[in-house]
Nucleic acid binder design. Structure first.
Lengths: 332, 332
DNA sequence: GTGAAAGCGCTAACAG
DNA sequence: CTGTTAGCGCTTTCAC
């Protein structure tokens, strides 16, 4: 009549079944220490028969360390971050490490909460695409977490290893490509927080002797709505611009949509080049010329870094690649 | 000289600092039991000052239950599963539950491993897009896990609640739409495992008096390569077909690409309709007509289900919606 | 209202 | 080679 209250099979059960002490079971199962072939056999058999699974809880508590890595990204729905996460998972899973994921929505407050919860869970390493400033991370470091940042570093935490793409080179490549096509009035659609790229943009424009008009640098939040508003505003009010560089795939998507809506033809009226190569860039019409970033690789490398994490781990800068398709043309 | 070996602040530290017993600290911090305003104050102050974070490890071990939900999806890189995961995260995070994620690559073996690891971690609820058959899930149930399936049910596990889309109705809508445009030779590009949809397809075709040619039903594995091969094969060898229904966004993407490659014009030469509305469907040329599925909602509902999980939880079937854009036309 | 103590499942000494 | 034992950090009786 009684609901069969599941009790987890413990190491003790196995010990009894194999008629040995719990320590022996532990040794055999964890491969540590020695055991006679005979007992070894008995233990293994008993464990298999009882379908025994050691509890990570008990183990971790005892060892005072949890494996497990935390992963904090702004938005799992954004293809870039999804690929990044995929890379992390690939590495973590092959290392047998569980990963705890959280999405911050680029909100520092949510980020802080998630960091707190990772600490509570005793996760000991985290990979994060940071939203907040250095302060958010105080608790994490005090708790002894090993952290590596991905995609962007955090100001004031230059000591924390970060895996990023070579923004300067990527932006320069894009701008040079556009300049070679004759464009002079090029706009930059950026996400808040992409100041690195904005600086690189000004620099590249300057280096080529192109005028940098601050009004052609517009920023959006990391949502479709905000991106669309920014793109539409830009295209609508600045009819003198002849090319736009989108700082990310959401911005690029918004630009394509806004252009269609406003009857701005790409690339005839304006050329468009976008950061991040996503699958749809090829399906889009016209197919989008992009600055590809190795997102999945970035995640994988970050995971490697956070797992190995020796004394002085240094960050890594990944290269970008210009992929020419059909969204850029000569200045009209 | 000594590296400051981080020792985690424990409840004991707080107890000492507040000059009370550990039990009191526990009571105050967990809101359970009573405490005089005075001590309460002291404890809170001490905890804050020491920046104390209770260890989920200790708590869970003691309570013999871990909150936390496991999430198993085939591929985080696929927009559909990413949105699904997003829904799960939205619900879980608002409930304060950590989520452990794993990708199966639609490989039953990987799935089994991940299930094992979730059990070890003492996760007690899992949401999964299952890849394997019922057997894989034996250990999970024996361990007392609460599981709910998403997107697809598992044969032989009809008792497990599942959150799925209304495949029959979705397929019927698509086929009827195509039939209304005059199409008779319609192909179905399916993923292995979408037998439900395949059956629905045969049924819908039959109901409309259209011939169902088994050779026009082709299956692919859930990778871009496999999808492309299937789509290209179909388009290349079957010049008599006049419309194709793609069972998922990967298949749809492949169909678009293959059509372009083979110079098959959409919708002039063949009409294309795809399951799942993804952001790029609108950016594609022509914009894709789709059967939208509430992916993020599906994830959210699954999470709700697995969290509430009362005695007899029933699954839920979510509706689909036809979104007409520009990839279907009258039969040529 | 509050503290002492037991014990969750496990591993790491330490004896035998 | 193997068993006993002492905790890891926490919650929860159970006395006081």
């Amino acid at each position: 009549m009684r609901m069969s209250e599941q009790r987890r099979t413990t190491i003790k059960d196995v010990a009894e079944a194999a008629d040995v002490g719990v320590a022996t079971v532990s040794r055999v199962l964890s491969g540590t220490g020695s055991a006679s072939p005979a007992t070894r056999e008995r233990v293994l058999a008993a464990a298999a028969r009882l379908d025994y699974r050691p509890s990570a809880l008990g183990r971790n508590l005892r060892r005072r360390r949890t494996g497990g890595i935390g992963l904090l990204i702004p938005d799992i729905t954004d293809s870039f971050y999804a690929r990044l996460a995929d890379g992390v998972l690939a590495c973590a899973q092959s290392a047998g490490e569980p990963v705890m994921i959280g999405t911050t929505g680029d909100d520092p407050e949510r980020e802080a909460e998630l960091i707190g919860s990772l600490i509570e869970e005793s996760v000991e390493r985290v990979i994060a695409v940071p939203s907040g400033d250095g302060e958010m991370w105080g608790p994490a470091f005090r708790a002894g977490l090993g952290v590596v940042f991905a995609e962007r570093p955090v100001r004031g935490r230059e000591d924390v290893p970060a895996v990023v793409t070579d923004d300067r080179s990527g932006v320069r490549t894009a701008v040079e490509y556009l300049a070679a096509l004759g464009h002079r009035r090029v706009a930059f659609l950026a996400r808040h927080g992409q100041e690195q790229r904005v600086r690189a943009f000004r620099e590249a424009m300057g280096a080529l002797g192109l005028p940098v008009d601050e009004e052609l640098i517009v920023r959006a939040r990391a949502t479709r709505d905000s991106a669309y508003a920014a793109a539409a505003g830009l295209l609508h009010h600045r009819s003198d611009l002849t090319a736009v560089l989108a700082g990310g795939n959401l911005l690029g998507e918004a630009a394509v949509l806004a252009a269609r809506e406003l009857d701005v033809r790409v690339p005839r009226d304006v050329s468009l080049i976008m950061f991040d190569d996503v699958p749809w860039a090829e399906l889009c019409w016209p197919p989008l010329t992009v600055i590809a970033q190795p997102a999945q690789d970035m995640g994988y490398r970050a995971a490697e870094l956070v797992l190995r994490q020796g004394r002085r781990t240094r960050g890594v800068v990944l290269p970008t690649e210009l992929i020419v398709r059909g969204s850029c043309g000569p200045r009209r």
